[in-house]
Design a protein around this nucleic acid. Sequence first.
DNA 1: CTAGGGTTAG
Length: 432
Amino acid sequence: MDTTKLLSLLRTSISSKSLLKGKLIHQKVVTLGLQNNIALCKNLINFYFSCHYYHYAKLIFKTLEDSLDLSLWNGLMAAYAKNYMFIEALEVFDRLVLHPFLKPDSYTYPSLLKACGGLGRVGYGQLIHTQLIRTGFVLDVVVASSLVGMYAKCKRFDYGIKVFDEMSERDVASWNTVISCYYQEGQAEKALELFGKMRDSGFEPNSVTLTMVISSCARLLDLERGKEIHEKFVKEGIAFDSYVGSALVDMYGKCGCLEMAREVFDQMPVKNVVAWNALIAGYSSKCDSKSCIELFRRMNEEGVKPTLTTMSCILMSCSRSAKLEHGYVTVGDYFKALALYGDMKESGVKPDAITFTSVLPACSQLAALEKGKEIHKYIAESELETNEIVMGALLDMYAKCGAVDEAFRLENPLSISTMWFSHRKRLLEEDG
DNA sequence: CTAGGGTTAG
């Protein structure tokens, strides 16, 4: 078996994430004495990353560290950055800087800047920025775009936009980065303005551009403009991926145009969870809990795993209509919410405020006091006891479970009493 | 094609 054959086998293992197959190829590489082949090792590293076997990836890198191949270092940094392992990416960079013969190049910096942005380390990012100016790497269009992205992630949109304004060369992705800057900053109108400028400068938008532009229209509740852009890109035959599809469903849903949202949704060949959530949220805003539950059921049938956003929408629409349409809601759905929380804990996902406000109402409905107490413990550990929404949900749970003593024993008595009154008010309203 | 940047819900 030769290198070319092994390489193509490895590539199929990466796309199929087949651990066993990849390990067998690794073994073959070693028995053939090819463990110093750079191309093979690069692919082995990517393979182990695709299976989340980071330790093995690192070991392979270590055996080749002295080979003076910069692309190996860049590849490892890129893999770490792509997998949100930003600290590890920075560690690789720190070691590269100390290397006696290798120097970072224009392929190194985008991953480094991505890590800085991900960690919110704007000070370090600025230091890199000055280095990039000094070395001239800032003239590279990808490096400069990465700088814009880094500043945006650190919420320093003004710096990001300044870097973009000073770029001598631009491409579609750099325009997308700056449009994203304005969008993330909450300036949807300005994002649309930049979209216009992009077209005036002769750049054709791609599906990434359209995703952000449609989302900007959604935020502005500008149905007319959203429709216009939608029709235009259908006419121009631009690829319609699941990002654009989800954004369209969201835009039509937010604008109250559920027929159009439904039409776009039905036309999506692959419906991802964001599209489902956007449509459910659309019906939820129309207080159409019947459609919400129906979609939730269909979603489960089609094997799409609900997320916390799904559960929030479903639980909210259920609780809103609990009195009017009792029973749409089966007890089983609430159990599903609890099971989902269990999955999250097991997979090591750190629950946040949204998680708890979604799960606690489920406990209240079931009067699942023990489960609720356990979750209370996690809330304390997550230092969320000052979060009013979470504490409101917790109080609600204890009250519905009949554990009034527990409800009063909660910390932060001042806000608890405030919430107690709002809770009582709600109960009174519910009773008519 | 082989090492780098940009996107959706809450």
